[in-house]
């Protein structure tokens, strides 16, 4: 019995969420008193993997051949499952990223494992194997007992504190037989120069209170200055003021950044569901009765067109 952590790479590089995940997996293995192994799939330099040693990583299986050059959910699941078998893993941990979401459930089906997606805590093993996650789109928490012998966990981004630990990485090249021939990737389009909302630690978001898409300049300026991603409420993306990819809420993207600044958003229950796990929430709204203030840590009752420029000026004064 051991724990296997899938260290996902993005064009050969690892992200902060990978380090959160390694820390989580290491704490999990140590809590259970079992060995931790890792697996990397795709084209990654050994030096990039070795650099993760400072988070306590030891043995890493590297699956790196032509068949896994591009992410294909079925093929990657085959590779991951082969390494799980070879390393004797009964628990596999992945990040709850787009690709983690695409392969975690497939892996659980392949291994006939219990799975919890979007975990936010280590398991409580006093009575079963109980992992906390948000349910009802952040309107509550559920404690999921994984009852099968094999288990798969996908960990939410930005929900576990990174911790360094002594580690000595040893890489074993692993050859897995995979078949991705039914799928062809034809184009990958990345937004450049923007922080992806799902990974952002700081978010500046705005709603109908801004009156029109032409007024988003100050929101983008504030976000740029503090290194935040921009987001919006559902009505704003529905009318096309902002792209759907910025819509946070129950039927949009769920975020849990360290800071969420909401400008001109009243705070309907569906919107709050998508943002309520943010660590610090600041609300700027001219309506003192806006329900969002009840979910806020800091509030400013005032006109966005007066308040936001003051915030922009104040940030500029910091440097």
């Amino acid at each position: 019995m051991s724990v296997l952590v899938y260290i996902e790479n993005w064009e050969g590089a690892f992200k902060k969420s990978t380090k959160e995940l390694i820390t989580y997996a290491r704490h999990l293995a140590s809590k259970l008193g079992v060995e931790l192994n890792a697996v990397s799939i795709g084209n990654v330099e050994n030096s990039a993997i070795e650099a993760l040693g400072v988070y306590g990583l030891g043995k890493v299986y590297s699956v790196n051949n032509g068949n896994v050059a591009q992410f294909k959910a079925g093929a990657y699941t085959q590779a991951l499952s082969a390494v799980a078998d070879a390393s004797g893993a009964s628990i596999v941990v992945l990040g709850n990223t787009y690709n983690g979401k695409a392969m975690g459930p497939r892996l659980a089906a392949k291994m006939d494992a219990s799975i919890v997606t979007g975990a936010i805590s280590l398991p409580d093993t006093d009575n079963g194997f109980v992992v906390k996650k948000t349910v009802f789109s952040n309107k509550g928490y559920g404690y999921v007992n994984l009852t099968n012998e094999k288990k798969v966990i996908t960990l939410n981004i930005n929900s576990y504190q990174i911790e360094e630990a002594a580690g000595n990485v040893s890489i074993e090249d692993f050859s897995a037989s995979v078949d991705g021939s039914k799928v062809n990737i034809t184009e990958v389009a990345k937004q450049t120069g923007k922080i992806p909302l799902t990974e952002a630690e700081l978010v500046v978001s705005a709603g109908r209170g801004l009156k029109g898409p032409e007024n988003w300049g100050m929101i983008e300026e504030l976000a740029d200055l503090i290194g935040a991603a921009t987001a919006c409420s559902k009505p704003v993306s529905d009318v096309g003021w902002r792209p759907h990819s910025e819509h946070v809420g129950q039927t949009g993207i769920t975020v849990s950044p360290n800071l969420y600044i909401a400008v001109g958003i009243s705070g309907a229950i569906q919107h709050l569901a998508g943002v309520s796990s943010s660590k610090t929430i600041c609300v700027i709204n001219k309506d003192p009765e806006a329900p969002f203030f009840q979910a806020a840590d800091y509030g400013i009752v005032g006109d966005a067109f007066e308040v936001v420029p003051k915030l922009v000026a104040a940030v500029k004064n910091l440097s």
């Binding site: 659980a108 006939d112 494992a113 219990s114 799975i115 919890v116 109980v130 948000t134 349910v135 952040n138 309107k139 509550g140 928490y141 559920g142 404690y143 999921v144 007992n145 994984l146 009852t147 099968n148 309520s276 796990s277 929430i281 600041c282 609300v283 700027i284 203030f293 009840q294 979910a295 806020a296 840590d297 800091y298 509030g299 400013i300 009752v301 005032g302 006109d303 007066e306 308040v307 003051k310 915030l311 000026a313 104040a314 940030v315 004064n317 910091l318």
Partner: peptide, 29 residues
Amino acid sequence: ANTTIGKYDAPAQKSGCKYIDACNAEQLI
């Protein structure tokens, strides 16, 4: 079944909103 949920919690309530006067908005920063 492969999982069960035996316990639920409501989200933690915020301890209360600290208001900053709009005239001194820069205090938030």
